[in-house]
């Protein structure tokens, strides 16, 4: 049975509704001005910001002042945290500085590949959920971990497509399919998406949203690339809702073996 295409198809996270299914990161841009234009062109409504990079008490901070909080949900992330304790402290700092209690949880003890630590992530998620945060955890594409996080009350799960910043696309496809199949919270594919076709692929699989940063920030023309990702995400979503035919490896003749039955 095919899902009916809905004109109104919002992404709902923790009861809050968003018109765009593309989340954008703010790292690696050549200037705040380019970043601001890229955000606008992408149509995004959720923008992540690394707490380690911003000065929360400085109104003139180059990133914070470029993100219009009337237009975007500012989603602080705990990038740089190496364990649960550091991530929890960063989240509390953000809330104390007046940010909404939404947090993108990243615990990455290895600073080179930035792969998430499943044990510390789960630990931090439990604490932050208990403290009233809406938690969006960045995880490896591990279906069991995704369920465990859902059980402690995270608002989404955010499995990686391939190592962050690698632009290599959906290398974890098989596992993300299982996560999507089992999830009762939105699945946001985060990290590794290097081209709009990768984003479209994730959406066609049934991901609820994708998060992109490097591919846009370091593109020759980040604004045009942001626009291209917007289209990729929309096309993928529409295809998913329209009901894709299953791919076949061989051409299928009409009943060469069973034709005699008719």
């Amino acid at each position: 049975m095919k899902t009916k295409i809905k004109a109104d198809d919002p992404l709902i996270i923790a009861g809050r509704s968003f018109g765009s299914r593309l989340l954008l990161g703010t790292g690696k841009f050549s200037s705040a001005r380019v970043m601001k234009s890229a955000l606008k062109a992408s149509g995004t409504e959720i923008v992540t910001v690394a707490l380690r990079r911003v000065e929360l008490d400085n109104a003139r901070d180059s990133i914070l002042s470029a993100v219009d909080v009337g237009r975007y949900l500012l989603l602080p992330n705990t990038s740089g945290a190496r364990n649960a304790e550091e991530a929890v402290r960063l989240a509390r700092l953000a809330r104390a500085a007046g940010c909404e209690p939404w947090i993108k949880l990243e615990v990455t003890p290895d600073p080179h590949y930035l792969l998430p630590d499943p044990i510390e992530t789960l630990k931090a998620a439990e604490i932050l959920v208990r403290e009233g945060f809406t938690v969006l955890p960045y995880i490896n594409a591990d279906p069991v971990l995704a369920k465990r996080l859902e059980e402690v009350g995270t608002a989404t799960v955010m499995p990686l497509g391939s190592p962050i910043g690698s632009n290599r696309g959906l290398k974890t496809r098989e596992l993300i399919e299982i996560i999507i199949e089992k999830a009762r919270v939105p699945v946001v594919v985060d990290a590794g998406l290097g081209a709009p076709s990768h984003a479209a692929e994730a959406m066609e699989m049934g991901a609820d949203a994708v998060l992109v940063n490097t591919a846009v920030a370091v593109a020759g023309d980040p604004v045009a690339m942001a626009r291209a990702f917007k289209k990729g995400v929309e096309a993928g979503r529409e295809a998913f809702l329209a009901g894709l035919g299953s791919p076949r490896k061989t051409a299928e003749a009409s009943s060469p073996l069973t034709g005699f039955l008719r």
Binding site: R52, V54, G80, L93
Partner: peptide, 20 residues
């Protein structure tokens, strides 16, 4: 740096999160 197309970053880590 800005002329070359690079953003200078003055803060890359917040010791407050590691230092109680």
């Amino acid at each position: 740096l800005r002329r070359t197309g690079y953003e200078p970053v003055w803060k890359e880590w917040d010791a407050a999160s590691a230092f109680a």
